[in-house]
Design a protein around this nucleic acid. Structure first.
Length: 103
DNA sequence: CTATAGGCCGACT
DNA sequence: TAGTCGGCCTATA
């Protein structure tokens, strides 16, 4: 893994995240795994955290593997709103398994 | 169901 | 060089 923020891994992650269908979510670990680096879930989170505000990447479709929203405060609210806008209804602040992608 | 424990790894001090 | 800290995960109790 390069330290370069423009590493291939990052690019692959971006591509995978952008391929999450509307109305579905995925986990950080799942993304990392699909990108070929199963142990880099945290790095995935970091990538998304550093996204520019004007990014088109659907960062809100990425949640924890247990369905929790990783963010807190304002970011959390923004994410929840985005998700609900796509028809995803959290149950007790949790995204049910059936919304996960890939299944 | 919640609670710990341990692992993981890049970035930043 | 060595800690510390994350938009984390899994296994176990």
């Amino acid at each position: 893994m390069r330290t370069d923020s423009e590493s291939e891994f990052a690019l692959v992650v971006y591509q995978i995240v952008s391929s999450i269908p509307s109305g579905k979510v995925s986990g950080y670990g799942d993304i990392a795994k699909l990108a070929g680096h199963p142990k880099h879930s945290r790095f995935v989170g970091r990538l998304l955290a550093n996204l520019p505000k004007d990014s088109q990447l659907p960062w809100w479709r990425v949640v924890k593997s247990n369905g929790d929203i990783a963010l807190s405060g304002e970011g959390r609210q923004r994410q929840l709103q985005k998700l609900q806008h796509e028809g995803i209804t959290p149950l007790n602040n949790r995204i049910p398994r059936r919304f996960f992608w890939p299944d």
